[in-house]
């Protein structure tokens, strides 16, 4: 048993490691490594314009005492939350149509079409929006021709929202449609059988059953909008200073990486907390 078994064990283990090891190794080195470095870096100091490993709280105290950091933080949070809710409302009729009014075979095609833009040049789409909304752009021209103001629509929340929608609609549509598509049709029939009218079916059967998926839609829209800086910069313009813009400025600015690290960690903490609370709420069940 001994020799043969040991050899065999080694061969089996080698085969296993060949498949199991690559991803954890790569992610430990190139994902966990950088993320841990980010944490460490928040305690480093900048001496004579050089980044120096250290254990110093100066970046933390500096960043946390900035008044405009907190106002930026809350503005970012509020704007992305608003966008997330609005995008979800905008997407709902479309998701409902895909889930209930379109045959399952066609539904996959529509979902594919809805998801595809997620993977295609976001930057160019934002540029197109800039052209659409800017002075002399398509939309102001249209508005002007019907007698409204033809002023640029850029640097407004409308522009920022459209940017956020461009980014998050695909994900929200897919999550909502899957959630609505999975609602048990028998439950809906049972409700009708017990005298529920269409609106009551929607309110008491469909929405509660789809709640986890719908909530995840809001959450993902929030996460993506909150971390986004291109729309905020090029559509919202200087009007909306957000945390990611602040962060990019800090990073591109050069040597203030410890401060950038602190801002990053704050962002991560907020996202994590929001996600946990939302997920817990989404999957909460009545009764025990």
């Amino acid at each position: 048993m001994s020799v043969l078994s040991a050899k065999l064990g080694l061969r089996r283990r080698g085969w296993f490691a060949l498949w199991a090891a690559p991803l954890p190794v790569w992610f430990a080195l190139f994902f966990l490594g950088p993320m841990l470095l980010l944490i460490a870096m928040s305690f480093w100091s900048v001496q004579n314009y050089r980044l120096t490993p250290d254990f110093s709280l100066s970046a933390w105290t500096y960043v946390l005492s900035l008044d405009f950091l907190w106002s930026t933080f809350w503005r970012s949070y509020g704007l992305s939350l608003l966008s997330a809710v609005l995008v979800s409302l905008l997407a709902f009729p479309a998701s409902y149509a895909m889930a209930f009014l379109i045959s399952p075979a066609r539904r996959l095609t529509f979902l594919g079409l809805a998801l595809a833009p997620f993977f295609t040049s976001y930057l160019v789409r934002i540029y197109s929006l800039q052209v659409f909304l800017g002075e002399g752009g398509v939309l102001p021209q249209l508005f002007h021709s019907v007698g409204l103001s033809g002023a640029s629509l850029l640097n407004s929340y409308t522009a920022l929202f459209l940017g956020h929608a461009t980014l998050t609609l695909p994900v929200v549509l897919v999550l909502q449609t899957l959630a609505l598509g999975n609602v048990d049709r028998t439950e809906m029939s049972a409700a009708v059988n017990l005298g529920a009218r269409p609106l009551q079916v929607l309110r008491h059967i469909i929405l509660p059953a789809a709640r986890p998926g719908l909530t995840l839609g809001v959450l993902f829209a929030f996460l993506l909008s909150y971390a986004e800086f291109v729309s905020a910069t090029y559509l919202g313009g200087g009007v909306f200073q957000t945390l990611p813009i602040l962060l990019t400025d800090l990073i591109r600015g050069g040597q203030q990486w410890p401060r950038a690290a602190v801002v990053s960690l704050l962002m991560m903490a907020v996202l994590l907390l929001t996600s946990l609370v939302t997920v817990a709420w989404a999957y909460r069940q009545k009764g025990n």
Partner: peptide, 20 residues
């Protein structure tokens, strides 16, 4: 109503692509 919502969403998604 639902189909109008569906169209609106696809316009928002694909108009920027088409305009390019």
């Amino acid at each position: 109503v639902w189909f109008t919502g569906l169209m609106l969403v696809f316009v928002i998604l694909y108009a920027p692509i088409q305009s390019a």
